[in-house]
Simulated scan of single mutants.
Amino acid sequence: MIGILTFSRCYNYGAFLQAYALHRFLLEQGYDNELIDYRSQKSIDNELNALWAEGKGNIGLKIRIGLKILKFRLYHSKFKKTKHYFNREELAQKHYDLAIVGSDQIWCYTKEWGGVDTPYFSDQLSADSIISYAASMGPDKYDQQHPRSIVRLMKNFHALGVRDTNSYKFAQQLNPTTPTLVLDPTLIYSFEKEVKPVNRKKYILFYSDGLLPDEKTLITLKKVAKKKGLQIVSIGKHFEWADVNVVCPSPFRWMGYIKNADFVFTCMYHGLLFSIKFNRQFAMFLIPERENKCLDFLKRCGLANRVVKEADQLFALVDTKIDYLPVNSFLQEQQALSTTFLIQNVADITVVEHAEG
């Protein structure tokens, strides 16, 4: 049996979909697996408190946030998973042939909801072998001073799949095994059966976790939408300036909104990945701490020019169509490399089982 330890018990679209993608990909390859359902109460409370704070003073918005939470909890039931472990010591109760840690920014230990969370670095995991897949440090820097516990635990990984250059250098300096740069699971699983269509047409999709571009860029976005005859649809968050707010779509409907958008404007990593996956026209606005993961991938795809640095660029980016032929060719090569890394490490350790689901 394979155990996957990642961010899954949360209310974030990208986090849910990356966990779902890895889970389903392995099942389709014939490998039985389950999500190791670990998250501390402190981490859960911090995220929920932040969500409820968004609806402060707005009863209607609070109801929609509550509906969003309920939808995610329903979708969490789509995983085969363990009981909920609140404490890291509980993780050692179950032994696996293989434990996969990742993906997502599980190695970000300075800014996540629970702070330093050592199980994501192999602590208390009971397995014949432990590997990472598409693990990331997020905004943390590879050359910062790392806690001694993390330095020690990183040596326990038998193979290291990481999703960005910064995380590659981090893994490289703390483990003798050479890391492999791989794709996020959402780019190796098709979602063809899961993505739900939407009826809305002619819109710019705005996807953010609350971060906004500078005021001039926001004004320009509204001008672009008006000139093109498009509505601005904000997904996942409520913004008063948006024409339409879709606060609580299901994760599969969320994908549909990206797939059907005329243009996507985002600061989010999985907003970027799904825009590319569905060959959408898009642009990004970034703050420095998001460059480790977003700008790194844009450069690898040859799309670094899709980052808006000045407001006036937005008009040009909307009118300049992305040539997806070289991008898709790059993705096909990386999909082959990524799936080979994953299957080889699974096959070397785990007996293939015919899993259902």
Rank of each mutant, 00 (worst) to 15 (best):
L331C: 10
Q344S: 05
S132C: 12
Q93F: 08
R73Q: 15
Q231D: 01
S103C: 07
I219Y: 08
P249H: 09
N33T: 04
K293C: 07
R253H: 14
S149T: 13
I322A: 01
A53N: 07
V182S: 15
N245D: 12
A50Q: 13
K321W: 01
E194Y: 06
Q145E: 15
Y75Q: 09
S275C: 00
L22K: 03
K227W: 09
D209T: 10
F121E: 02
K81P: 02
D97Y: 07
A355W: 08
R300Y: 06
K259N: 15
S77G: 11
T350S: 13
L273N: 00
A127W: 11
K226G: 01
F25E: 03
A336I: 10
P197W: 07
H84W: 03
R148K: 06
N279K: 13
Y20M: 11
R300D: 07
L174A: 14
D45T: 11
N156W: 09
I4S: 02
F263R: 02
H95V: 07
I69G: 03
I150K: 09
Q344K: 14
F79P: 14
V327P: 12
Q281Y: 00
Y20S: 09
M255Q: 10
E215A: 13
L218S: 13
G161W: 03
S275G: 00
P251M: 11
V246H: 11
I322H: 02
Y257H: 06
S208P: 07
L98H: 04
H238G: 07
R148F: 13
K237V: 10
T339V: 08
E47I: 12
L160F: 05
K71P: 02
K223H: 14
Y109A: 08
R88F: 12
K227S: 12
L5N: 04
Y13N: 07
I63Q: 15
K81V: 06
F72A: 14
L212N: 12
F285Q: 01
K42W: 00
L303N: 01
Q124E: 15
